[in-house]
């Protein structure tokens, strides 16, 4: 194939032209970003108001979500391994109890079975309850032998735990099986409900952010109507006209997000000490978890995207209405 210098030149030209266009496009993005930030900073008070609206609307559900996460951590640490207490008939012989321990150990659903003899139980009770002297007056040990069953970690739902408890309860020497699941279940269900409420709240407040930023951008478009018309008259594309407004929206969202991060941080910092004291009083290792690095980053991303979307809504609705007549 012969190389046609003419067509080669054409290809090179097209390539440079594309590169020029790309460079110009990048340049306009940079300019739009800088210019729209400049405009926001030009009227600091009005911009601060807008950012505060965004920040408060986002900080509220974020705080609730972080609080829920903390509750979850607290719940998990209390209930990492739900235990089943199996009280054996006081008249059962120790060998029978040992045999039962072995039998239970063989269950696929059971991870570990601990045997607590009546004597051990009495000692623990005396040590912990402070009733030691009174217990000394008793003729015989009233406490039954107990097996503490730890199910395998895959069994966590209340229903399967209940099934397991019932299975254990069928053994002849077993008196009662105590599965104190109610508070765990309630906590879990409350948590699910809480999450649903927070999600709905977050959705509503995000919609609020979207609309209020959309309105801010609409006003900006309105005030720069003349410029838009002239730009369109001298050949500005819709993308060119749209760009600075989209950047404004993104900036408002981002700056609002920064303020929201600060608000959440300040809020949690102010109660951190109190919570630590409270946890210490309950001998808990628990400490309050803040938003964290990825949480802050996520909040900023969400707020920026919300700003961009709000601007997009306003721009889509109002920019096409402004045409040179």
């Amino acid at each position: 194939m012969s190389k046609d210098p003419q067509s080669l030149r054409g290809a090179v030209q097209a390539k440079t032209k594309f590169r020029d266009k790309f460079t110009a496009w990048q340049l306009h993005h940079r300019q739009s970003a800088r210019e729209s930030l400049g405009r926001i900073l030009q009227s600091p008070l009005a911009s601060l108001m807008t950012c505060l609206v965004v920040a408060i609307a986002l900080a509220l559900p974020t705080t609730l979500l972080v609080a829920l996460n903390n509750l979850q951590i607290l719940g998990d640490s209390w209930d990492a391994n739900p235990k089943i207490s199996v009280f054996i008939n006081v008249r059962a012989r120790e060998e029978a109890v040992r045999q039962l321990q072995k039998d239970l150990q063989a269950f696929a659903e059971i991870n570990d079975v601990e045997y607590i003899s009546p004597e051990q139980a009495l000692q623990e009770f005396q040590a912990m309850s402070g009733f030691g002297e009174i217990l000394g007056f008793l003729d015989e040990n009233p406490l039954p032998p107990t097996l503490v069953v730890t199910p395998v970690s895959s069994i966590v739902e209340p229903a399967s735990l209940k099934t397991l408890a019932m299975k254990i309860g069928e053994k002849p020497i077993v008196d009662t099986v105590d599965l104190d699941m109610d508070w765990v279940r309630r906590l879990q269900e409350l948590m699910v409900l809480g999450r649903k409420i927070v999600t709905a709240l977050a959705g509503l407040l995000s919609l609020g952010v979207l609309l209020s930023l959309g309105n801010t951008i609409r006003l900006a478009i309105e005030s720069r109507k003349e410029e838009i018309i002239i730009t369109k008259l001298v050949g500005g594309s819709n993308g060119f006209v749209r760009r600075p407004f989209l950047y404004s929206g993104a900036w408002y969202g981002f700056l609002g997000g920064v303020v929201a991060c600060i608000l959440v941080f300040a809020g949690f910092s102010s109660i951190k000490g109190t919570v630590a004291n409270l946890a210490a009083a309950y001998q808990s290792q628990f400490f309050l978890q803040g938003l964290g690095f990825s949480g802050n980053l996520g909040l900023l991303a969400v707020s920026t995207i919300l700003g961009l979307m709000g601007a997009w809504l306003a721009v889509g609705r109002h920019l096409s209405e402004i045409e040179p007549r």
């Binding site: 266009k21 340049l27 306009h28 300019q31 003349e226 410029e227 002239i230 001298v234 050949g235 500005g236």
Partner: peptide, 23 residues
């Protein structure tokens, strides 16, 4: 149809900025 929020240079430069010329 001039824009009074910018100087003469920027007014004249508008079509070039739109067309994507370098500074």
């Amino acid at each position: 149809q001039l824009l009074f929020d910018r100087n003469v240079f920027e007014n004249v430069a508008l079509p070039l900025r739109i067309a994507g010329y370098g500074s």
